[in-house]
Amino acid sequence: MEKVIVSKRPGDGVARFFELGLRLVAALPLLPIVFVVAVAMWVLVPGFATLINLENMARVLAPLLVAAIGATFVMLTGGIDLSVGATFGLASVVGATVMRDSGSVGLGLVAGIAVGAVVGAANGFAVARLRLSPFVYTLAILLTVRATAFLLSRGYSVGRLPSEATAFGRYQIFGVPSLLWIALVILAIGLVALHKTPFGRSVYLVGSNERAATFNAINVNLTKWLVYFIGGTLAGVASMLAVLRLGSGAPVLGDTILLQIIAAVVVGGTSVFGGEGGLWRTFTGVVLVVMLEKGLDLMGLAFYDQAIVIGAVILFGSAFGVYLRRRRNFGLR
């Protein structure tokens, strides 16, 4: 039997590794920034690489990631949901109230998620069916939903939840916080939905070219309705993760999350015009935002200093992403 000898030129492996790296960076333009920031924090910030801080970051990351996944679906169709923070707040009030009054954590979770689903469904109907501008409509909904949360809670935060609620928020599975597991499962489902189903293809096509999507027999209205429904539902889920972590809900709970979500999705590399981006990119964006916040916290920087640093990194990260996209694939085929 003839022996097949595969000749390898020296440096082939390195070249292939380099090409793989380039492909990875082309797919996830924020990855190098995430890597650099992680290394910098590791080296420069005492306490950053400790187990307790990593667990802490995981718990902070979970609700933000879940809400950002929902927002990514919406933005991939070229839409935007400004009501996500207000929905987060309302869902937390309703979920926490039901938990406290019924004594059932499960019932509270269902109620909170249902609030998100209802707001999302209404948003989807208004944008897809009534053809209202997503920016204007969801801004109006933001105000209405926020006011509803204040009316229901009279401005007070809602606590005294069953002890199982916060126990679950602290629970760990294989050393990883339970909240992060939930977020990762949702990420996995989102990835399958986006890349392995006809629905995912319609999301990208609607975002790239709505007219072309219509010609391709894609139900544009249904796709739009679904992404807002998913966005609202995941805002409800994210809110429940925050309630489990904090042991309370409050109408102001989602006040700061909207900007974090938009920052994470956009800096990750999902286009605000739709059709380009994805959940892995959002994941890198969320990781960057959380790492910066926690790292700068540990460095003792005040919130305004943090805002400047985070703003600068987001600006630089976005510009770097645009640069990479312009040199798309670096000539790779």
Partner: peptide, 23 residues
């Protein structure tokens, strides 16, 4: 060690955990 949560309960919880991590 000082941290300002800037009116955010989630940030305050996280900052307190960070301070515990810092000893």
């Amino acid at each position: 060690i000082f941290q300002n949560a800037q009116e955010d309960a989630q940030r305050q919880a996280s900052q307190i955990e960070s301070m515990i991590a810092q000893g």
